[in-house]
Design a protein around this nucleic acid. Sequence first.
DNA 1: CCGTATCCCGTGAGATACTG
DNA 2: CAGTATCTCACGGGATACGG
Lengths: 134, 134
Amino acid sequence: MATQTAAQRRDEARVAYDAYLAGCPARELLDTISDKWVSLILNALSGGPLRYSDLGRVIAGISQKMLTQSLRSLERDGLVSRTVTPSVPVRVDYALTDLGQDLQPVMMAIKSWAEGNIEQVRSAREAYDARLAS
Amino acid sequence: MATQTAAQRRDEARVAYDAYLAGCPARELLDTISDKWVSLILNALSGGPLRYSDLGRVIAGISQKMLTQSLRSLERDGLVSRTVTPSVPVRVDYALTDLGQDLQPVMMAIKSWAEGNIEQVRSAREAYDARLAS
DNA sequence: CCGTATCCCGTGAGATACTG
DNA sequence: CAGTATCTCACGGGATACGG
């Protein structure tokens, strides 16, 4: 159940599924994890478990609806665990599962790339838009 | 303009932008590259330039509209180049730019992860759905 | 061959209000 | 605190037809 095991599974199954194929389950999974909120949530949980309200605070601008909806989806897919502490008021913690921790570095890479290359993209956009205006 | 230069820029700008913040340009860029079609297109171009019709064939199920729309967006963001050969009929080739090649490994990692872990996700879903039915 | 243009429907997603 | 429930609207995105 360690990361190595997950890596082994990945190698073995690499040829079994092909996200290029429409209707392939891998295509659908790629669609669900290629989501803005999913990447932000998985990255936010990389430092350890967080409560529902903490997630909403870290990920500025996310609505309750999208936060709950994304968390449910991640929980169903086995990427995030949900732990309820029956206190008053109730306390709910979300954490990465082993599978989620396996995916997290990839999501971090996307987020870091976006943050580190936004200026290149912006200047590329300006150049593109300027050429259209000519 | 090599990959190393891009990596240096990434390190320098890492703290300047934060995708957790709503309204931050990095958040918007994260949203655009966290897209199913974007990841499939960038991966498809990793082996070298492809023509428009080839892309449509490799990425099964993509509509003309989404293919054209995604390619325009990628071109504007400086991730993909578009080369027109004025023959009869006209020939158009799409290729990764240096910036696009810098991002491609990350997109490949997502696609590979989806293909390699879909079975884990499927069994997690079955377990989740079974618990709800009880 | 490589698109653009139009129509149209489903759903992604915010705002708001309410509950255990 | 941690959600659920509606309502609403904009837009993603497919189908189809046409143009250079």
